[in-house]
Structure formats: C-alpha cells, structure tokens
C-alpha cells in the first residue's frame, strides 16, 4: 500500500483568517505561555518591524517640527524621534496584547494543530521506511487503523477551528461561557413568553381545532 500521509496535514489558513492583530497575539501567547520556541522568531521580527513602521510614520512629523524648532542638535533630534517611536511602540504592544484575553483557546488549538502536523510528518517517514523494509499484512492493517485514527483527529481539529471561526464572527459571544449564559437567558425569556403571553393563545387555538374536528366527525356520522 502506497500511503502519503502529508495529505492529512491541516492548513489552518484554509479554515481561519486571523488577521495581523490576532496572529501576533497567538504567536505571543504560544511563545510565552505554551513555551513554543519556534514562535520567538516571528514575535521578534514582528516587534522589530512594528518599531520601524512606527518610526517611519513619526519621521516626517519630526522632520517638520525640527526644521521649525532649531533648539536641538542632530543627535538629540534622532534620540527624540526614537524615544517617541518607542513610547508609541509600547502603547501599540499594550493594545495588541489586550487581544490575548480573546485568543487563549484559539492559541491552544493552533498549537495542537501544529503538533498534529508534526506527528503526521513523523508517521509519514516511519511508514515510508516500513514499506521499504517489510510488506506483511499485519503492518498494512496497522497502517489502515492509524490512518483512520488520524482522519478522526483531523476532522475534530477542523471542526474545532470552524467553531472558533464562528465564535469570532460573533464577537459579542466570543467566550463560550458567555455564549452559554446568553443562550440560557434567551431560553428563559422564551419560556416566560410562552407561559405568560402565548399559552392562552395556544389553548384557544387547540380548543378551536378540537371543535372543528368534532364538528367534522359529527357531519360525517350524519352523512352515513
């Protein structure tokens, strides 16, 4: 059996589009909380470019100001520009890191998908080695079972990603606990509405239907 497990890998981009803010927050969370060292490069590069971009925006303003105020020498002008950029960079980081509260479960899910993809990669190598060395039916059966198990895991992870995407689409109910509370509240409201307002109406309708049924029954009997 020639199996290519790579097709079972999950490309998270197909299912979720996080955008810059959330992606940065996810990387940050994965590095600091989940201790994923691979995210360090991404976090550092993003932070560095963020500082450069802020300096780029600040630069023309500083150019205009320093040309009108000739109090500072060039070195001081440069350090003032850097200090302002640094201050705005810290504020931007605070804003971006506020996203951390929203993305805990998403970051954990992405971490799990990453680990799943690594497992797929390892299994793929193992299966290729195994298929070159032996070719007995017991191994083939094992491979089939393994692929089935991986497919189930894949489907579960994809479903989880889709659920996360739905939660984020409806941002007011991003927290699952909040969503459940809201559902409970809505349900209680609905029950109250049924009991107090519509119950009488339903009762009337039911009585009317019964009356009609009895009338029809009587008419049919008379006709016989």
């Amino acid at each position: 059996m020639n199996v290519n497990l790579i097709d079972l890998k999950i490309d998270q981009d197909q299912y979720v589009d996080l955008g810059f803010k959330l992606e940065f927050a996810v990387d940050f969370y994965r590095f600091f909380k989940l201790k994923n060292k691979q995210c360090l490069t991404s976090v550092l590069i993003t932070e560095l470019v963020l500082l450069i971009l802020i300096s780029i925006v600040i630069l023309p303003l500083c150019l205009i100001i320093f040309r009108n105020i000739s109090v500072f020498n060039d070195t001081k002008q440069f350090f003032i520009t850097i200090l302002i950029s640094f201050f705005i960079w810290i504020l931007t980081n605070f804003y971006l890191l506020k996203q951390l509260l929203q993305i805990k479960s998403l970051a954990k899910l992405i971490e799990e998908i990453d680990q799943y993809n690594k497992v797929i990669q390892s299994f793929n190598i193992l299966i290729q080695i195994q298929s070159n060395l032996t070719n007995n039916s017991a191994d083939l059966q094992q491979q089939k079972t393994l692929i089935e198990a991986l497919k189930i895991t894949r489907n579960n992870l994809i479903n989880a990603l889709k659920v996360e995407a739905i939660f984020r689409q409806h941002q007011k109910a991003t927290n699952p606990d909040q969503l459940l509370n809201k559902l409970e509240e809505d349900f209680t409201n609905l029950m109250t509405f049924d009991l107090h307002s519509s119950f009488g109406e339903y009762e009337t309708l039911l009585n009317e239907t019964l009356q009609i049924g009895i009338e029809i029954h009587k008419t049919i009997k008379n006709l016989k």
Partner: peptide, 19 residues
C-alpha cells in the same frame, strides 16, 4: 484571496530588507 495576510507579509519582509 487573503489580501490582508499578503499585505502584512510583504510589508514586514520588505521593511526588514530595506532596513
């Protein structure tokens, strides 16, 4: 297709090389 992601990635990589 995924324009925002492309814009951010191109911006970040270009900025680093220019710097």
């Amino acid at each position: 297709v995924k324009l925002n992601k492309k814009i951010v990635s191109l911006l970040i990589s270009s900025c680093l090389f220019f710097a």
